[in-house]
Design a protein around this nucleic acid. Structure first.
Lengths: 242, 242
DNA sequence: AAGTGGTCTAGACCACGTC
DNA sequence: ACGTGGTCTAGACCACTTT
């Protein structure tokens, strides 16, 4: 194996890229087991240790999940543990309960300047906008406005959302084959306007968390842009720094 | 090597614990190089690969920093790269500039209920309280109130803070031997009270981010509790979700 | 018993930084 | 030239799950 200098990429990263590619093309689907390390080693003609290192990195990135004695699985948003990876909201006191997602609106539009920049699509391209409410213990806590590229989410409608019980990302994954694997959130404090005050049942002007999120799929391609307003009277945004 | 079942801990974790212990006792200090993998392998009578795996984990936890060709170093808050690991504040537009820390007050007190719970010390134990302002490009952006266990930070005074140029954590590390290695932040939105409005030069009632942080040293021991109020007019809190 | 991931070892060689 | 971390291999054995 020759290791040419400027573009040197170790073997295990090339293997990683190949596995990634198989995930992207849907050869192995979320929730399913991928082939064993031995099989992959044979397939790619490398040692098991090299496959192992590739998988190690992907497990650290939450793309794969290892289960000793069973196998290695493609991570899925159907797994309830995955929910709080993207929703870092915790009640001030009391147990961590699962929220209920209530779709309010869903319509099509053309991408404006901001949406086109955030989603890396042409201005004027088709987008879908979803507004939805998140309730914890039957109390409204988050109001979200979500922008999706129309091309990837063809057929998404209010009815689709109504009929789905589970997280949005598990819907996107199951119905549209779009897997969210990372995101960047920009957080500020804002005053509740009329709309937010109505939806969240708080007085106008109440300080709220504004959480702007760009979500990425494989290859760091942005596929969702959303803005959430969080009522932090009884919840807070929890962040671990390591 | 026998691997008794219920309390089984792999060898590389035991090595990790030993290295951790050496860090804790100050055998190797922040910024310094630790012995080479070969030396450590000899010292602990294991293979280099086992030491390597222990160090891998500690590098992933930002306790050690590997530098190919040079050696492995103890992570330090003197390293300017470490600053934004704990200060996730980014200007809306413009370059990422380093903030200026301006100490306002520093006094001793007895731990109340909340401080004693957060710092895991006895109620009534001695604590030190610091108030300080953070300026970016000479504009006030963050006002912090910081609670420290008096026992660990004996001799910390307003003069100490005045004379220090660098981050607080690099001061704590250099002068008091206390290394911050992780933290948990609870974020909410609040309205600026009189004090915050004065310090941050914003109208009373302006929505601000309230960031409560508990910071941990080795062994997950809490050693700092602080509350910051962030003005998010020209900055936002940036969080990466993976 | 068989198959999976997890650990541990030993040795060879490569890439990087320093002397 | 030398020492450091980084990669790759091959083989042995352990722990966990399923058959």
């Amino acid at each position: 194996m020759s290791h040419e200098s400027p573009t040197f990429s170790p073997l295990y990263r090339q293997i990683k890229a190949l596995i990634l590619q198989a995930l992207e093309t849907g050869e192995w689907r979320p929730g399913q087991a991928i082939p064993s390390e031995q099989e992959l080693a044979a397939r790619f003609s490398v040692s098991q240790g090299t496959v192992r290192k590739a998988i190690d990195e992907m497990a650290a990135e939450n793309l794969l999940v290892r289960k000793q004695g069973k196998g290695t699985y493609v991570a899925s948003h159907n797994d309830p543990r995955a929910l709080f990876r993207f929703l870092r909201l915790v009640p001030v006191d009391g147990e961590l309960s699962s929220p209920q997602s209530i779709p309010l609106d869903c319509w099509r539009a053309k991408a404006g300047q901001e949406a086109s920049r955030m989603l890396a699509i042409e201005p004027g391209a088709s987008i879908i906008i979803v507004r939805r409410l998140l309730k914890f213990s039957n109390k409204p806590v988050v109001i979200d406005e979500i922008y999706l590229p129309g091309e990837l989410f063809q057929g998404l409608s209010a009815e689709t959302l109504q009929g789905w019980h589970g997280s949005l990302y598990s819907l996107f994954e199951s119905r549209f084959g779009v897997r969210m694997i990372g995101a960047q959130e920009r957080i500020r404090a804002v005053a509740a306007d009329r709309g937010a005050s109505d939806a969240l049942k708080v007085p106008e002007g109440t300080p709220l968390l504004s959480v702007e999120r760009v979500t990425y799929t494989y290859g760091d391609r942005p596929v969702e842009w959303r803005r959430g307003l969080y009522s932090t009277a009884e919840h807070f945004y929890l962040n671990e720094l390591n």
